[in-house]
Design a protein around this nucleic acid. Structure first.
Length: 409
DNA sequence: GATCCACTGGAAGATAAGGAAT
DNA sequence: ATTCCTTATCTTCCAGTGGATC
């Protein structure tokens, strides 16, 4: 069977609004947060001696943090033009930089064209402030995904203090806006950075199903041809994403994939069934990626949860999981860690969203303890784990145990 | 209501691996 | 090649928690 490539689509009018790098024209679902940002930026336009406040935006991925700040900065620059004020924003994404040093080098390269890699930190810092001084007026540095710099947070300290340290002229303003989806990063920052940086902390809470629905509707309007979406398609995508992470990005992926499935198979309508299949594929990809990137210890911990889940004995306590974990580690000849360590791994898996950890205060012996169970799809997880070259044997053992038990029943 | 117990959470120190400096 | 530094990951240890038990 041979297919010819065809121009145009029965389904899509314009696919761009469904992709990650689309800049939305409005964000009504984020009115509250945008209001906060507005207030924090407002001093720049008032021009009464103070620059815009430093800000820290945090919230999980796909909550409109980046889109929100870009949206307000655009507003601000327009207002500055009208008012004849000199305001410049520098947008920088720290993904791929592992320290303040890297970030500064790349910022300097972007501003001056010189790559100063290898030079001492102090020279690079000076070079950066000189470049900023050349721009003059009000300069706002936006550092997206700032958590990548880990604990080397000098840059977050030096930018807010630039004026009082005499690095830039008194006549100008320099502020920094940090964006992060990692809550731990915020807690681990050094106290002096917290002092200087957090004039404003703005939290982006996950979208609920209704909000996701209106976001999807707006994008779908532009992306799809009229009337090709079954009426349940958008609510289903929204509900699925809301239940999981509350991420707009995720909801859009479901919708886009569903559209592609319909388009590729020559259907004229996108149906609920397409959404279901799109979701299965995307979720499986996500779980696969997550598991592949785990350390062996994480994978074995997960296998232990899977094993007990298969037997129907979840939610299970740490001790029960530890016994199973030891069996698994022995089976594949891996190092056996302590129970304390396993607990940390299990809690780590909880953060990733693969398993669910619940803290209980009751129990036949009292005192606090955790119970763990699977959060992601058991069948898919089992499938993916058993494909692993090393863990496969252990997984087989787990499933064989089940068949023996079923036999005994 | 004192004591017990299974578990937690945090700290301190050990160990290994990777990178930079010498 | 060797030494030093940093970072990540574990282990060991132990006080703290709070319902169960006597």
């Amino acid at each position: 069977m041979s297919r010819t490539f065809e121009r145009g689509s029965q389904i899509f009018e314009d696919e761009r609004p469904l992709t990650d790098d689309w800049d939305p024209e409005e964000l009504p679902e984020r009115d509250g947060e945008l209001g906060h940002i507005h207030n924090a930026l407002a001093p720049a336009i008032r021009d009464t001696g103070v620059g815009p406040h430093n800000m820290f935006l945090f919230g999980k991925t796909g909550q409109g943090k980046t889109a929100g700040i870009e949206y307000k900065l655009e507003d601000l620059e327009k207002a500055a033009d009208d008012a004849g004020l000199d305001i410049t924003s520098i947008n920088y994404n720290c993904a791929g930089d592992s320290s303040s040093y890297h970030v500064l080098i790349n910022l300097v390269e972007r501003l001056t064209g010189d790559n100063l890699n290898g030079h001492p930190m102090s020279k690079i810092t000076n070079e950066f402030f000189e470049a900023v001084s050349d721009i003059g007026g009000t300069v706002i540095v936006v550092l997206d995904e700032i958590d990548n710099i880990g604990t080397s947070d000098e840059i977050l300290y030096s930018i807010p203090r630039a004026k009082s340290n005499g690095n830039i002229p008194d006549s100008m303003h320099l502020s920094v806006i940090g964006i992060s989806n990692n809550f731990k990063f915020r807690d681990n920052l050094s106290p002096k950075v917290k002092d200087t940086l957090f004039d404003e902390e703005i939290h982006f809470a996950p979208y609920n199903a209704t909000q996701l629905r209106s976001i999807l509707e707006r994008r779908a309007d532009q992306a799809f041809k009229d009337g090709v979406l079954d009426e349940d398609v958008i609510p289903l995508c929204a509900a699925n994403a809301a239940q999981d992470k509350g991420s707009a990005r995720q909801a859009l992926r479901y919708l886009y994939k569903a559209g592609e499935l319909a388009s590729n198979t020559g259907n004229e309508m996108v149906t609920e069934d397409h959404v279901r299949r799109a979701r299965e594929r995307i979720d499986r990809k996500n779980i696969e990626k997550g598991i592949r990137e785990m350390t062996l210890q994480d994978q074995m911990s997960l296998t232990a949860v899977v094993a007990l889940e298969v037997e129907g004995s979840t939610p299970a306590k740490t001790t029960e999981l530890y016994a199973r974990y030891k069996d698994i580690a022995r089976e594949i000849n891996a190092d056996i860690r302590t129970q304390r360590s396993l607990r940390d791994h299990l809690l780590e898996l909880d953060l990733m969203g693969v398993v669910d950890a619940t803290k209980k205060q009751t129990g036949n012996r009292g005192g606090p303890h955790y119970v763990f169970e699977m959060a992601s799809d058991l069948g898919m997880t089992l499938d993916i784990l058993s494909e692993d070259s090393r863990l496969g044997d252990a997984v087989e053992l787990v499933t064989t145990n089940r068949s023996i038990e079923e036999y005994l029943d």
